[in-house]
Design a protein around this nucleic acid. Structure first.
Lengths: 91, 91
DNA sequence: TAACTATAGTACTTTTTTGTAAGTTATTGC
DNA sequence: GCAATAACTTACAAAAAAGTACTATAGTTA
């Protein structure tokens, strides 16, 4: 479960289903996440092989995240979770 | 995510897919869970409306857990998670 | 040259989860 | 009457997760 069984991972993965996004943009899509947790989480997802991190050597930094193939294999689950309403409902 | 985004919930739900089980039996199917976490988790699942708790007024106590209809609606997700190998893999 | 930018790292604290060990219960078998 | 039973419950301690605030980077632009 560690792959998606955390507070933020599924949410981040879900937002990446539509394609790669710049770091800052992605983070803004996740209200309530702290800077630290965001970085930490995407980095873990990268280690898990679910997302790919692309760095552009420019200043100020530019980094894009996108799903890996493995990440996309979760699409069904992610969409199920979403439509099941897990992100919102109680608790 | 709180509904299944925890260490034990998905596992417990998964084991209930085959039908109702007695408390002690269910617990033994989940190696590594402490007594406290087991009780706590099934009780939360009950509050979430995903499992039904049936008490038999006997001594020593007898309690059975089974999935509610709502719980069964997670079947697809649970099986996907399982076949995706989330229970095991890294970390 | 000083401020600004986007991304991330780090130290430290607080909060949340989880584990451990010890009760509690009411009946039955000895 | 006393231990054994199944399913908890509780208090306390330990561990893990998350939050906060601050720092670094190095080109660009005012």
């Amino acid at each position: 479960m560690s792959l998606i069984g955390t507070k933020w991972k599924p949410l981040i993965l879900f937002h990446l289903l539509n394609g790669g996004v710049r770091s800052g943009v992605l983070q803004k899509k996740i209200p309530g996440i702290s800077n630290k947790m965001f970085t930490q989480t995407v980095r873990e997802l990268e280690k898990d092989g679910l997302v790919i991190r692309k760095i552009f050597p420019v200043v100020p930094p530019k980094v894009e995240y996108k799903l890996s193939e493995r990440g996309f294999s979760l699409e069904g689950i992610l969409r199920s979770l979403d439509s099941w309403g897990l992100e919102d409902s109680k608790h």
